[in-house]
């Protein structure tokens, strides 16, 4: 067995052992660090459900106080935009979560969230991949969600949020000739957005302070 395989095997067992250890909470839930993975369903075009996307993402959480958490995330989302136009979105950003209930150990813990995001969008003509348009922009997002605490260390979280992209609006249209023309509407007044639904699993790895 190669050295790299030994290291991988050793790392796997260390990871499993780490996973099974009970977490020592120092005082309260402030200072908790979590790692998670999530699936995302995206409804593009100002909430129009006709053009859905689907994505994979990851996140880590840093809880600042008993009722305040932060969520640092990255998502990769693909889907269809218009007739034979494909769309890829990349998001990286953060959200602040405010818990609506005081009980830190409740099985269900609802919250509201607000945050910022940087994003990359690429739209491609399915029949001519050399015909595409890209955009970098920023966004703000807001929504609500809940943790379902399956164990003291592990939760399943459900979130619905709306993300407003601040910047140029991008869209494409296929003419009767079959040619796709992409448009980037400049001016910064556009609030193109999409509705995002996330299902994530998160595991608390450490309690750093409090």
């Amino acid at each position: 067995m190669k050295r790299s395989q030994h290291i991988l095997l050793m790392f796997s067992f260390i990871s499993f052992g780490f996973l099974a250890q009970p977490l020592q909470i120092k005082k309260n839930s402030g200072g908790l660090i979590s790692l998670g993975a999530r699936s995302t369903m995206s409804a593009f075009n100002h909430g129009d459900f006709a053009n859905q996307g689907f994505g994979l993402g990851g996140q880590f959480r840093v809880q600042l106080a008993k009722r305040l958490n932060t969520d640092w995330f990255a998502d990769y989302i693909t889907g269809n935009s218009e007739d034979h136009i494909s769309r890829t979105d990349g998001h990286i950003g953060w959200s602040v979560l405010y818990y609506l209930t005081k009980n830190e150990t409740a099985t269900i813990r609802p919250y509201v969230l607000m945050g910022h995001c940087f994003d990359y969008t690429r739209m491609v003509d399915d029949f001519d991949h050399s015909n595409f348009m890209e955009r970098w922009s920023s966004a703000v997002q807001g929504g609500a969600g809940m943790h379902w605490n399956l164990t003291p260390r592990l939760d399943l979280s459900l979130v619905a949020q709306y993300m407003f992209h601040l910047g140029n609006d991008v869209h494409g249209e296929r003419h009767e000739t079959g040619v796709v023309e992409f448009h980037k509407e400049k001016g910064g007044a556009s609030l193109e957005g999409h509705l995002l639904f996330h299902v994530s699993i998160n595991y608390k790895i450490a309690d750093l302070w409090h």
Partner: peptide, 13 residues
């Protein structure tokens, strides 16, 4: 399993 391939010359990916 659910997924959606993109950049295809067919409608349903």
């Amino acid at each position: 399993i659910h997924g959606n391939a993109i950049n295809l010359p067919i409608k349903n990916g």
